[in-house]
Design a protein around this nucleic acid. Structure first.
Lengths: 234, 234
DNA sequence: CGCATGCTTGAACAAACTCAAAGCCCGTGG
DNA sequence: CCACGGGCTTTGAGTTTGTTCAAGCATGCG
């Protein structure tokens, strides 16, 4: 886990470009805000479902952005208990570290393509460009904000409140035309919310029975009443 | 909570110095590493036990360092459930934000003196001095690391494991001559660990019965067997 | 020295977990 | 195109861990 810096590509799609897409980036494109600004070299890389992107405590050689797919960042206890700290969806940057190593491991939840840049080149850019330095700090601060909210959820919310929070978060982040297609299984959701997969399933069933959400298959969910869901979320 | 930027001083000890202590700072002094470097103006301020230092979502006007005493940072749910995200002990910097507001509230656990600098002046310094910018990022990254470890604790550890982790953390951070004087009450510990105060008390009693720790009053604790405590911590 | 606050302990309870089984999809291959 | 198989999800029943509610105790502060 500590030895290799990058795993084997999934389908040998290691397309290295001299420069990342020169097309204009929206403000929300955090990676573009950096790479576009200082002209860093970015590459693309693909991982198959459940493939490890990097391990816990591995040297942080690259910084990643999800192009398509989904990624989970997690920590393990020695007996296998897992806590997922975050899900990374298209557009999200992950694997950014101020220190030398990755604090959490990362795996592709489904087949996933990422863009990546060498951490060293970002550090270098930050050393000369104050805007880049500010942006790196802001990205880490944004992760911290999420972690702080999540500590409140894990420490103090009930199972139903956690699931309600999760659904509202996913709705915000990946709903298309009022519907969301969850890339992760019930176990992943449980490990994110500090619950078992059964408890997650029961909460979702209950919300379904109350008409608050609709299913089209276990992972296609429509929120039918965001207000009521919000009320369930403490 | 959103209106005032700084609460009334405890005992009118608002000593403003032209410059903070010019004595050499150890490497561990994060605040000094910045203020010393760029010559920022720092002040000292005191808060009485249980006094609010700033509220959640209040504008982040200052960055603080504990000089003496102890501080808790926390979030509340609407019905009063509380999650303490961190305890700040002498030497610790807290209240540092990349964005405009404080994400957690902060209160003095006991009578506390802090050193503080205006956030704006730090931002300004970071704009010209890359070392300062790097340091601010590193401090936020350090908080993130703690939050990630704490998510694992809150989401996946048992009550005994949480208490063991807590004791080892406090031992590391505030033990003097093998003994630690906890500044916080059982409720604070519970709200930090996602437990009730009764569960914390029961775990401590059990550790005492097993000879793993000794008490001299409820808050004076001696760890008699760190190895066994470490084994109890997953 | 006395009281109030915080801590401990006990007993009953509840929320979530574990273990188990059945059902549903979805992708695969015939 | 349909049948099959396997993984994922749901649901149920019983258990466990930690919570809640309630006393009693200690301690440290005035």
């Amino acid at each position: 886990m500590l030895t290799q810096s990058l795993n084997a590509p999934a389908i040998s799609t290691q397309i290295t470009r001299g420069k990342v897409a020169p097309a204009p980036h929206p403000v929300s494109d955090q990676f573009g805000a950096i790479t576009g600004h200082v002209g860093l070299v970015a590459s693309e890389f693909s991982y198959r479902k459940d493939e490890e992107i990097y391990g816990e405590d591995e040297p942080a050689e690259y910084v990643y952005q999800v192009v398509s797919g989904a990624v989970r960042s997690y920590k393990l206890l020695s007996d296998g208990r897992r806590q997922i700290g975050a899900f990374h969806l298209p557009g999200d940057v992950f694997g950014l570290e101020s220190g030398a190593t990755h604090r959490l491991a990362a795996e592709a939840i489904i087949d996933t393509t990422v863009r990546l840049v060498k951490r060293a080149s970002l550090e270098k850019a930050a050393g000369t460009d104050v805007q880049v330095a500010r942006k790196l700090w802001a990205m880490t601060a944004s992760e911290l904000r999420h972690a702080e909210d999540h500590m409140l959820l894990l420490g103090r919310k009930t199972a139903m409140e956690r699931v309600a929070t999760f659904l509202l978060e996913m709705d915000r982040r990946l709903a298309v035309a009022g519907m969301m297609a969850l890339p992760m299984c019930r176990r992943d959701i449980g490990d994110y919310l500090g619950l078992t997969l059964e408890t997650v399933s029961r909460a979702l069933s209950q919300l379904h029975a109350q008409g608050i959400l609709g299913f089209s298959g276990a992972r296609q969910i429509v929120l039918r009443n965001r207000q009521r869901l919000h009320n369930l979320d403490a």
